[in-house]
Write a protein that binds this DNA or RNA. Structure first.
Length: 593
DNA sequence: AAAGCGCCCAACCGCCAGTAC
DNA sequence: TGTACTGGCGGTTGGGCGCTT
């Protein structure tokens, strides 16, 4: 027997310490390390410090790496819990306030024991803490002969069940989109504006609002979300958020109610979308329809909207059935008109198509944010808006299968507050986060003009979908953005931090993006040719590894060591492909839906 | 003083979904 | 398509603490 254990331990050593012993206690891979090697019980201060350091260096996503990096004798899973429940910043360490307690009871009446969900409404509180509080107070109330929850669940359920549309509970149809949160800067002041030969040079600032109310004819289960705005950018931003919300809802539906339909959803999602486009107003249409009526219902809705076209100047309705064909024709039209279109709104279809693709990319990227249930309200993408935009209704089949409670949860998701995506704190994570953008760039040049107030970025055709370059408003200038030293790392950083208005000019034939910086100086520089990326790679090598990774690894010396560690890291993150070129090009950007 | 008891809450555990391979 | 792995969630546990006897 002893021989066997020796043998096993040798094998374990060969496979990186993973236990070969498989049994009930090893059923969870988090615990697959020999559990006897893991400490249990209360955490010591020293352990907390080690964990804090590890999380500061590596972020709070990859707990297996954190476990290894920290040297803690605690399984990754426990490290995560310790961080979430006790160590993470901004955790409130004092008892629940009266307001918080009331909110917990209210939320529990709505969500039941979905503690993490309840916790998402209480900043600085962990699900565990709320769970404990609930059990404690429930016990207490039980002892006192009171109802377990002070909230009258019955009456709230009656309210829900008598509502024709579940969404009418808190947000009646046709009510405007909630205003952007205060954390969002005013669009015209902080977002990039986009110029294009395809589109008017000046953004359209006035759009007539229209009354568009198909719900009465779409049936009692229909819901329409209307976005009205005087600013086209604002509208598209609202649409962007609305679309993100719908995607999020669909995702949550899959998770909670009909996860077994995942594959079906994946295949059908695109075909089940209904796009409504109008220059005067933007509409997000969702309808709760019986499954067997999907096709006819879809046509009915489409026809209904078409009948109203007279009310909506130049509007277009594209049903799922002809969407692909339309896109194809639009794409070809766009190509043909590329050399002949100037001035305002000369190719609205092309712009629409472009807008759609951009939005798709954007939201795919959002969906790709792993384990995230957040909306990147502050991640402002350059987004061209002409007088055309599209609205996407969610997957009919998917929504049809929702129970009312699920829909209620969805409503909360739709209009409840969402937290922000954490800003990556190291260049490495910036790159990870925006790798998709850079994967699009096949050829890149970057140059500044004489005044230093503009610089120009020339991208390959494929990049047209993904440009997202902005500047930090607080530290804009030659020091912060010396173009010669503007490594790829710096670019990515800009993509996230910038809130200065930046105009992007798109010329014919190829994409030349002129980034204007509101009078701030940027050092002129010589154009970089298509070797820009590679050049920046070498630039990047000159910074210390520690700096490059934001302190994620210990600093090392020597190019080979640096390269080796970088490659190892990229392998871990699935970024590295057998390619000597810069890894931005290897980041595979795959749409989740 | 100490044993017993109950409460609290940090920590653990099992299960599940998503993802990569 | 199946499997392994990771991350997240909710239920449960158990050690520490305070109160009572």
């Amino acid at each position: 027997m002893e021989m066997i254990y020796i043998y096993i331990s040798r094998i374990e050593a060969r496979i990186g310490g993973r236990s070969c012993l498989v049994g009930p206690s090893n059923s969870n891979s988090w615990m697959s390390e020999a559990e006897t090697r893991h400490r249990k019980g209360a955490w010591s201060k020293d352990e907390d410090e080690k964990l804090k350091t590890a999380v500061e260096q590596l972020g709070d996503k990859n707990w297996v790496r954190i476990e290894k990096f920290s040297g803690l004798a605690r399984p990754a899973k426990n490290c995560r819990l310790r961080w979430i429940n006790y160590l993470r910043p901004n955790l409130k360490k004092y008892p629940f306030t009266k307001q918080e307690q009331d909110l917990i009871f209210q939320l529990h009446a709505t969500y039941g024991n979905a503690w993490s969900r309840i916790a998402s409404h209480l900043p600085g509180r962990s699900d565990n803490e709320i769970k404990n509080f609930w059990h404690k107070s429930a016990k207490k109330r039980q002892r006192e002969g009171l109802r377990i929850s002070p909230i009258n669940i019955d009456s709230s359920q009656t309210m829900i069940s008598t509502s024709q549309s579940h969404f009418q509970l808190k947000l009646p149809p046709f009510s405007p989109m909630p205003a952007p949160s205060q954390t969002c800067l005013p669009i015209q002041d902080s977002y990039s504006t986009v110029e294009s030969d395809f589109f008017p040079t000046q953004p359209i600032t006035q759009l007539p609002s229209i009354q568009f109310n198909p719900v009465e004819t779409l049936g009692e289960n229909s819901y329409m979300h209307q976005v009205k705005s005087d600013s086209n950018l604002e509208i598209i931003n609202e649409l962007r958020k609305a679309r993100a919300r719908v995607r999020f809802l669909e995702k949550k539906l899959r998770q909670r109610g009909i996860s077994n339909k995942r594959n079906n959803f994946k295949q059908s999602s695109r075909n089940d979308h209904l796009f409504i486009k109008s220059p005067q107003g933007a509409h997000l249409l969702t309808t709760h329809v019986p499954l067997d009526e999907n096709s006819s219902r879809m046509e009915e809705i489409t026809e209904d909207i078409s009948r109203r076209k007279d009310d909506i100047q130049d509007s277009t309705v594209i049903s799922a059935t002809n969407l692909q064909e339309t896109e194809r024709s639009v794409s070809e039209e766009s190509r043909h008109s590329e050399m002949s279109t100037h001035g305002e709104n000369s190719d609205s279809k092309a712009s629409l198509h472009k807008g759609f693709e951009r939005e798709e990319d954007l939201f795919d990227e959002i969906c790709n944010v792993k384990n995230s249930e957040t909306f990147p309200e502050q991640r402002h993408h350059n987004y061209h808006v002409n007088s055309q935009y599209n609205v996407i209704a969610p997957n009919w089949n998917l929504w049809n299968e929702c129970s009312s409670s699920l829909l209620q949860e969805l409503e909360e998701d739709l209009f409840g507050e969402r937290s922000q995506i954490d800003q990556p704190s190291s260049p490495k994570r910036h790159m990870d986060a925006l790798g998709a953008v850079y994967s699009q760039s096949s050829a890149t040049t970057l140059e500044g003009d004489e005044s230093g107030q503009h610089f120009k970025c020339s991208m390959g055709q494929e990049f047209s979908d993904g440009l997202d370059i902005r500047f930090p408003d607080s530290n804009l200038g030659p020091e912060s953005l010396p173009v010669n030293q503007n490594t790829a790392v710096g670019l990515v950083e800009c993509s996230y931090l910038v809130s200065q208005p930046v105009a992007v000019h798109e010329s014919m034939g190829r994409q030349d993006f002129s980034l204007q910086t509101s009078g701030e100086n940027i050092s002129p520089t010589q154009p970089c040719q298509s070797s820009f990326i590679e050049h920046q790679y070498h630039e990047a090598q000159q910074c210390s590894l520690d700096e490059f990774y934001g302190g994620m690894t210990e600093s090392t010396s020597g190019e080979e060591t640096w390269k080796q560690e970088l490659m190892e890291d990229l392998v871990v993150d699935n970024l590295w492909v057998e390619d000597e070129n810069f890894f931005f090009n290897t980041y595979d950007y795959d749409s989740p839906c």
